[in-house]
Design a protein around this nucleic acid. Structure first.
Lengths: 154, 154
DNA sequence: CGAGCTTGGTTGTCGTGACAACCAGATTGA
DNA sequence: TCAATCTGGTTGTCACGACAACCAAGCTCG
């Protein structure tokens, strides 16, 4: 066991713990609230956001997987559940015999249009209303730094 | 549907997305690495950290739940799994007939002592080596702000 | 062409977590 | 004292996600 480990100093410890805690509590809270007020989970919400972002409201499953950075199995199952609830529909692809389109339904649009305002408002209240613009920018910088280091890493 | 929603501005969007992405990728990566190099999950790791932090290496289940901020059912199941692998032991409490102590075993100590250095090193590489001390402090401030707003909220 | 590789997607299996129901031991208050 | 309540913990059930195995449709190259 190496004796030269560079442990975290107290400031780093603090920041690290706080980050983990904040994220855990925040996502639990957002999920609970979303669930309670609109019957959607965060995953449902993310799928619907991606589908509404595209002109015709439909995407191939693999595009959805790419956009969400999800495992394809996760997409498959999430879409299956959402289809059962009528939020999306699946359709075979004419161009590619293997393909599966995922299309948002009217009910799906309704659901996200109902859910979005309160959700965004809550994010604003819990996060951004407490921060200065400088802090927001630093937050972005920090997160982007982590992301780039994750990409670099072996 | 309210028309006066205060949507996120571009900077906020960016910070929000980056935060979520960074956390998702980072925790996936840390989990994978920990699993691969030491056979522990992040949850295992957290439990072991809490147990090594206390003098006699044992805690009542409810103390563990409090410290980890976990549901008691989660603690119960996690401990059951870890006991099966010999990382911890359960013991009845003499003082309280209902009580259950969770104690780290020699194997558990060994496991975390093996795992910790590489884990901390990775956190350092992926997060802190890329940040200035000012950024670290801002990160802590931001996270703490979110936490306090979560507490306030109804 | 057609065997072998690649790609898009689904499914089996396992581990995990939330929530609620439940059980047993402790506590308390009329 | 003893019924009502509270507390510590476990278990049932459901949803979710990762990973690997699998299936079928395209592609590619001799």
């Amino acid at each position: 066991m190496p004796l030269d480990v560079r442990w975290l100093d107290p400031d780093e410890q603090r920041a690290w713990r706080a980050w983990l805690d904040a994220h855990a509590h925040l996502s639990a809270r957002l999920n609970r609230e979303l669930q309670a007020t609109s019957g959607l989970s965060l995953s449902d919400y993310d799928v619907l956001v991606h589908l509404t972002d595209v002109p015709d409201g439909r995407l191939r499953a693999f595009e959805l997987a790419r956009g969400l950075e999800w495992e394809k199995s996760r997409v498959s199952r999430q879409v299956a559940r959402m289809a059962e609830r009528g939020l999306v529909e699946r359709a075979a692809s004419p161009e590619d015999g293997r393909g599966a389109y995922v299309a948002i339904t009217a009910a799906g649009r309704q659901a996200i249009e109902n859910a979005a305002p309160a959700h965004v408002e809550l994010v604003r209240q819990l996060v951004f209303d407490g921060l200065t613009t400088a802090q927001v920018r630093t937050l972005a910088t920090v997160a982007l730094s982590v992301l780039s280091r994750l990409d670099d890493a072996t």
